[in-house]
Design a protein around this nucleic acid. Sequence first.
DNA 1: TGGAAAGTGGGTAAAAGTGGGGAAATGTGG
DNA 2: CCACATTTCCCCACTTTTACCCACTTTCCA
Lengths: 148, 148
Amino acid sequence: MAFFKGQETYSIDSKNRVAIPVKMRKAMSEEAEDTFNVTLGSEGCIAAYPMDEWKKYQDKFSHLNQFNEKTRFFLRTLLQWSEDAVLDGQQRILLPKQLTEQTGIKGKILIVGMIDHLEFWDPEKYSDYMNGHNQTYESVAAEVMSAE
Amino acid sequence: MAFFKGQETYSIDSKNRVAIPVKMRKAMSEEAEDTFNVTLGSEGCIAAYPMDEWKKYQDKFSHLNQFNEKTRFFLRTLLQWSEDAVLDGQQRILLPKQLTEQTGIKGKILIVGMIDHLEFWDPEKYSDYMNGHNQTYESVAAEVMSAE
DNA sequence: TGGAAAGTGGGTAAAAGTGGGGAAATGTGG
DNA sequence: CCACATTTCCCCACTTTTACCCACTTTCCA
């Protein structure tokens, strides 16, 4: 099972290609077959799940009852941005134009490891997000981890 | 088994033909034999089920009790629009005029992958639909997935 | 410090998307 | 049963996008 961590600031070129940092590539399992499921992530980033991790979610979605209106809304919202991306010969993935436009990513791109997936951020948006919290890291940590 | 996802905005030409995006064509199984069952979908879209997936629904419908009035209404509503469509040499399907008129599709068309079928939308109607939900995606997601 | 690997950029052939002409098939009315 | 109009299907042609190379610079180790 994958465990992604760390961060890197890379370039996204005119063709929307981004190299995957070696340390993160190495964290991928063989079963992913160099394929990611790329989709819109939370707080305005792009999320990329290795295929093997994504399949677990797929199974759940397949068994939902589509005769329910809320289920349909949920699936449409979730799946509309979702797309496969295979690494090229240089270990880069091609990010869908729709997603880079939606998230304002251009030129420089921040890649963050998030356990079972990678996140791609506009560097500026990321620092705004980080600075936008008035609670300290320590107090949030205490809250989140107290339930465990 | 098919798993459709993603979205594309394509053109529907004067002959009512629409190309199927490659990523969605690849998600189709061989058994579908390039054939869709096209019918009226929920919330005012057109739904296209690959033949193999549609057969599973057919089986279910065959076993419903037609001595029940609601069942009859359900079946009539569903089946009256239902029609086969085979891909042409350019991997396009011909959408029935009745359905494009009914759903207001003309010129530009939005194609959305919905696991076991494709949905065709008038782009404007789709954004109205998406904006028309006062519940957030996150709260619907929590509801829908909590049962799992 | 030299070689390999990693990161970046670009050219080009192939594939995908779009549009239209015309023959074949279908349907309608006389 | 035939003549006509309409629709359907198959083909060709053009434009845009994508996939696959190749090449250069920088960084990292041995």
